[in-house]
Amino acid sequence: MTPALASAAMPLLRLMDAEAAHGLALRALALGLAGRDEAPDPPSLAIRAMGLSFRNPIGLAAGFDKDAVAVLPLLRLGFGFVEAGTVTPRPQPGNPRPRLFRLTEDRAVINRMGFNNAGLEACLARLAALPRPLPGVLGANVGVNKEGADPERDYPMLCRALAPHADYVTINISSPNTPGLRDLQGEERLAAILAAVDPPGLGRPVLVKLAPDLAEEALGPVVEVCVRAGVAGLIVSNTTLARPASLRSPHRGEAGGLSGAPLFGPSTEMLRRAHRLARGRLVLIGAGGVASGAEAYAKIRAGASLVQLYTGFAYGGPALIGRIKRELAECLARDGFARVSDAVGVES
């Protein structure tokens, strides 16, 4: 099966409950039923960032494959990188169902999953079993359990455990669905966590994933804390608690984090501010509302070296990846850029 044929099944999946459809899609991916993209990537899309080589800058954000059950099939769809997780030290069921809602009219999703995952031990076993080398870059996203968490203990332990099996590790302090997690974005608390993690001593690039709802005046201190700690980059951004007045779906009032098209504007503006503040000292990954090559290109022009999808992929299916790459290459060529890196931050 090709990615295009797999995408043709998306309307059928949308007839199912959102979480059930997601589970079915993951099982199909794990079985290789979504096919693979055999087309070579345009040379202009290759980029080196954080000391890693990416065949293209389009990645899958954490949250889609929480337990690393489909890493290889996802990379074979054409992603330049895949971020597994969020992984917590111990297994946890997450929040009660229903906890995942399609806002179809808004091309958006609201989730309050609550870091449901099988825990570190299960994830490590799957990552260790992957055939190497992989056809792309692998990231691991880590978080803390809802109960019994000690961030200064748990994040370093998770990072050390996963670093031998991943190309980079992301510290998630920005999910809105674990009580108190976003408080860890405070300057002093974040500095203490990063000191415990010791990014330069980990042997892998460490990223920090931020919330789009972070106060504007707080972004500068967070950037400086990350630079001082030796963090390689930031992911801008996670889901938002905001509810734009433009939302039309009957699910718009559900609690949880909003992702998808309504997040594109605010997350891109935050990305632009982060690029100005970082002044080349941090690699930025742009996430939030990307569903086309033009939107990926806008993130890159705003300061992102790499771009992540989630909701756009959930709606568009496997065929979306190839389409975004083709459109992005066309945007670069149209504007006279020989490679992605030439366009990073030209509009910040």
Rank of each mutant, 00 (worst) to 15 (best):
A4V: 11
A8Y: 11
L12V: 14
M16K: 14
A18V: 08
A18C: 04
A20I: 11
L24D: 07
L24R: 10
A25M: 11
L26Y: 05
L29W: 04
L29Q: 01
L29P: 02
L31H: 13
R36T: 14
R36M: 11
D37W: 11
D41A: 15
I47W: 10
M50T: 02
R55M: 08
G59K: 01
A61T: 02
A62D: 08
A68D: 04
L74W: 06
R76K: 13
E83V: 14
T86F: 09
T86C: 13
Q92A: 07
G94I: 06
R97E: 14
R97W: 06
N111W: 05
L124D: 09
A125Q: 12
L127A: 07
L127K: 09
L127H: 04
A128H: 10
L130C: 05
R132D: 08
P133S: 05
L134S: 07
V137G: 08
G139I: 02
G143P: 00
V144T: 14
K146G: 15
A149S: 13
D150G: 15
P151A: 09
Y155Q: 05
Y155A: 00
P156T: 00
P156Y: 05
C159M: 10
A163L: 10
P164K: 02
T170V: 15
N177L: 06
R182Q: 09
R182V: 07
L184S: 11
L184W: 13
G186M: 06
L190K: 00
L190F: 05
L194Y: 08
A196Y: 09
V197L: 08
D198G: 05
P199G: 02
L202S: 08
R204P: 02
V206E: 01
L207Y: 00
A211I: 00
P212M: 10
E216C: 11
E216R: 13
E217N: 11
L219S: 03
G220V: 05
V223T: 05
E224Q: 13
R228I: 00
A229F: 04
R243G: 09
S246V: 12
L247W: 07
R248M: 10
H251C: 15
E254L: 10
A261R: 08
L263S: 09
L263R: 06
P266K: 12
S267M: 00
E269C: 14
E269H: 15
M270G: 09
R272Y: 04
H275Q: 11
R276G: 15
R281N: 03
L282E: 08
G286I: 01
A287T: 12
A287N: 13
A287R: 02
S292T: 12
A294D: 13
Y297W: 13
A302D: 01
A304D: 01
Y310K: 02
F313H: 01
F313E: 01
F313A: 07
A314C: 15
G317K: 01
L320T: 01
L320I: 03
I321Y: 09
I321D: 03
R326C: 12
L328T: 02
A329Q: 03
R334G: 12
D335W: 04
G336Q: 01
R339T: 14
R339Q: 12
A343W: 03
V344N: 04
E347L: 14
